[in-house]
């Protein structure tokens, strides 16, 4: 244990799960607000340390516990989506269950933030376990699992002839309505328009969701709204374009104090919110 500041402590917890072990830093301010914990998921750069640095001051000022998992590359070469090869959802669940046992303040639904690959896991986790999530914050995801049964998982929630496709379709179908009722906040930088190596690129995905993270974020929000309305649900989803921000979590979270907005549940005042 070490001190982040005078009254906020950071501990490291490691849990085992059927899918593999997972470590996380838990940033715990001395004065708790009673608001749900925030879980911050890193992207493929696995920069959990940076997330701890960025969120520690916000945990202190907001009185919210922030949990920062670290999907180590050796154990988790893939962690962005639950599939036959990897079940990061099981590890994250095991972590949340363990933390809830050792600290009652960590029980109940959590607000989930993810950047890039972390945003991919965040929304896919929420689609399977919407009851475990309060607010969902998705920043700069490379691509999304659309709430659309006309295309097979992982692009959508339908089934095809690939192994396990029906299984994933069934698992998502029951949770979809609950997922569509979540409060979802999507963020993307206006300078995050590159087709870098980290961005999944193929013709099908480009056609379905767009060529850049900006296009894909906008497309996802539109499809989410349409899916919710089709089920008679008033969608609670927003898209915030972060002016001048590239594909950089530090830049994104510092921009106009986005980290504080996430931890304090406040409304962003960007004109680009839609």
């Amino acid at each position: 244990m070490h001190q982040a500041d005078i009254r906020t402590f950071i501990t490291t917890n490691t849990v085992a799960s059927p899918a593999g072990s997972l470590s996380a830093r838990v940033i715990r301010p001395a004065d708790l607000s009673g608001e749900p914990p925030v879980v911050a998921l890193h992207g493929i750069s696995r920069n959990a340390d940076e997330l701890v640095t960025l969120f520690a001051p916000e945990a202190h000022s907001s009185g919210r516990i922030v949990i920062v998992p670290h999907f180590a590359e050796a154990r988790w070469p893939h962690f962005q989506r639950p599939c036959r090869a990897a079940r990061p959802d099981q590890a994250l669940l095991a972590l949340l269950n363990h933390l809830a046992v050792i600290d009652p303040a960590l029980a109940g639904p959590v607000d989930l933030f993810g950047h890039s690959g972390g945003a991919q896991l965040a929304h896919r986790f929420a689609m399977l376990y919407p009851n475990r999530v309060g607010r969902l914050h998705l920043a700069a995801a490379g691509w999304y699992c659309l709430p659309d049964t006309s295309m097979a998982y992982p692009y959508g929630l339908g089934a095809d002839k690939t192994p396990d496709s029906l299984t994933w379709a069934r698992r998502h179908a029951q949770a979809l309505a609950t997922y569509l009722r979540l409060s979802v906040h999507v963020y993307v930088g206006t300078a995050d328009d590159g087709r870098d190596e980290a961005l999944r690129q193929n013709t099908k995905l480009d056609q379905l969701q767009g060529r850049t993270r900006i296009d894909r974020a906008a497309h996802y929000v539109d499809r989410f709204r349409a899916a919710a309305r089709a089920q008679g649900i008033a969608p609670d989803i927003s898209l915030t374009r972060l002016p001048g921000v590239a594909h950089d979590v530090g830049q994104a979270l510092r921009h106009d104090n986005l980290a504080a907005h996430i931890t304090q549940n406040s409304i962003l005042r960007f004109s680009a919110v839609s």
Binding site: R171, Q174, T178
Partner: peptide
């Protein structure tokens, strides 16, 4: 025994 599958039962 898979939590994703079990959650389907629970949500239903």
């Amino acid at each position: 025994a898979d939590p994703a599958e079990a959650n389907v039962f629970a949500l239903r």
